[in-house]
Design a protein around this nucleic acid. Structure first.
Lengths: 339, 339
DNA sequence: AGGAAACATGTGATCGGTCACAAGATTGAC
DNA sequence: GTCAATCTTGTGACCGATCACATGTTTCCT
């Protein structure tokens, strides 16, 4: 059905009255062909509707023009256009994206997910997953393939570049914002321990609190859902009522806010809440969410750029993208101290 | 870097002391090889770490084992694991997924996005986009490729199968639910006109209202965002206050609820709100959203199944997946009539 | 005008599989 | 014991590109 195998390079050659090699040259290095000949060939190509056979080309050249992308299921990077942006940037450079979903969080899960990509003969691999196993896999692969990792805390080495949102810097902004409005007892609801981002974010948080000599008590959440945030917030409230809660992301923040309201605490009057992501709807939810916006589209673009650099033989490097603090209702106003 | 071209089928043959054709047989039709020979070959394969070269195979067989998937940017199908599920189901059958993002909504935008997929020699195409242009493209492609469309209102023809969530049935449930709780003046905030789903949903809505002899006045929204829902709701309220609003999706519903609250209307006491999708967080937002849950993962799986059927030469067909009405706070309780 | 360098084009081998066909070995029926 | 059918394995061509190399033509410098 998809078969009726089209014309080959030799058919074009015959029609244009040149050799097959000349046609190949027109395709790959037009400058090496006389203008008049080139025009004749181009016309023949158009006339026959010729399209090069990628399999034949890959067979001979040992390059597939394929980039394998390992993506976590349910990841915001995918949802928020990040993957699309990566793909479109690569597409413009003649590369195609082979996608593979990642199920679990262990290293063997990750290995299992890349296998088909490698079997397909990809030229390079992009790892867009915060799962710990995926990150380990990246180092494993780095010897054999150009690899780009889109997750924080990955050191660039030969053949392995990395890009991430600089949430360490973002966390600084969050703390500054909360302290400015008069909050002192700050709590953090961290993410699932299997994400590399969880530790990164929690560490930055603790570091910043220590720096400002504020009390520190983080809580690790187990699931990346609103329910997880709800449960974690209740656990916090069983202990005491903080001035503000910084949540792993907006989804978790939504759950936390519900828990607060149920206890009769008003947001932001009694407790301020800050999330991360600026997920769709965060601006209209009640109350709207103060959040660290992650420019995931930029991440996709930077990732593509890093990959193209590696493929061009340039050295591996790390890139950081700054997030943006968007202040909304959930942390609006100023706390009147001395109450 | 990804080069050091591995052993070929002939290397394996030499080591096992057989002909290259026998190795090929072990790979493709093991039953046709004597058990003892097969074992020798298998051992040689393992010993050399041989992996078949997909390019060579594709060159000869004219099948790439690649499925091209056209996905709308920012689509929930992607976000909610639908794409992952599609990919994983296909992966189990030895197929790989080539992804291509869709930018605009016109037919030429769609054509521009599939082009690289076709150039790469995919065996089939999946269209996971509600954009009108993408649907038109599906018919265009159906003659030359097996095509599966994941959007409503597509008629199955030779080589073109389709799957969609049966929102017509879902809309019935929504109306029944609202009428049950005593609502009579029902309004609809539709989606962007460029989505095929917008018309499908609005039509089903109007049909159902007519059927029950209720007043009909749908509103078409222009953008698929919370802000769009907010604006549309305000436009409705400028006219009168309905008993309930059925929104294009949860995101739009969130915006609508904000508009209602700003006018001093309580949800669901004064106005009930129903969305579609059951997006992450819909269960913890304030108020939590009554919604038509779209089983997008199932959609991915069914899509994969339809595709495999087409590739196996079976006839095209359409499949519908039932959504599920999840009642939550935004339409809880019963309206006391006669006020 | 002669000869080297640069330019333009062609020839045949090759990448690593599968396909069509041939041929030897084994089995079973009569 | 013979012959056909079946099973098992091997041989060589071929898919459609690119690569290395060869050859013929211009260009241009001395």
């Amino acid at each position: 059905m998809a078969d009726p195998i089209g014309p080959s390079i030799r058919d074009v050659a015959r029609l244009a009255g040149v050799s097959h090699q000349t046609v190949s040259r027109v395709l790959n290095n037009p400058a090496a062909v006389a203008a008049s000949t080139r025009m004749r060939v181009d016309r023949a190509i158009a006339q026959l509707g010729y399209r090069p056979n990628v399999a034949a080309r890959a067979l001979k050249t040992h390059r597939s023009q394929l980039v394998g992308v390992l993506v976590a299921r349910n990841s915001l990077f995918v949802a928020q256009d990040g993957l699309s942006r990566l793909e479109m940037t690569l597409r413009d450079r003649g590369m195609r994206v082979l996608m593979s979903g990642l199920a679990g969080s262990s290293r063997s899960d990750a290995r299992h997910s890349v296998a088909p990509l490698l079997a397909q003969g990809v030229d390079a691999v992009v790892i867009a997953a915060n799962e710990a196993g995926a990150r380990e896999l990246a180092y494993e692969l780095a010897g054999a393939y150009p690899v780009v990792v889109l997750t924080p805390g990955v050191t660039a080495e030969a053949g392995l570049s990395s890009a991430a949102i600089d949430l360490e810097a973002g966390v600084k902004d969050v703390v500054a914002h909360l302290v400015d409005r008069g909050d002192r007892l700050l709590r953090h609801i961290a993410g699932p321990p299997t994400y590399t981002t969880t530790a990164a974010r929690a560490t930055a948080w603790i570091h910043e609190l220590n720096h400002r000599e504020l009390p520190v008590r983080p809580i690790v959440n187990v699931v990346n859902t609103a329910q997880g945030g709800y449960d974690a917030a209740r656990a916090i409230l069983d202990h005491d009522v903080p001035d503000a809660i910084f949540c792993f992301n907006d989804l978790v923040a939504i759950g936390a806010i519900r828990a607060l309201q149920e206890r009769g605490l008003r947001v932001p009057h009694d407790v301020a809440v800050v999330g991360v992501d600026d997920m769709p709807g965060a601006d209209h939810v009640l109350p709207s969410l103060t959040t660290l916006r992650q420019p995931l589209q930029d991440l996709g673009e930077v990732g593509a750029t890093l990959l193209l650099e590696l493929l061009a033989g340039q050295p591996a490097r790390s890139a950081l993208i700054a997030p943006e603090l968007v202040v909304r209702e959930s942390s609006a106003g100023t706390r009147e101290r001395g109450s």
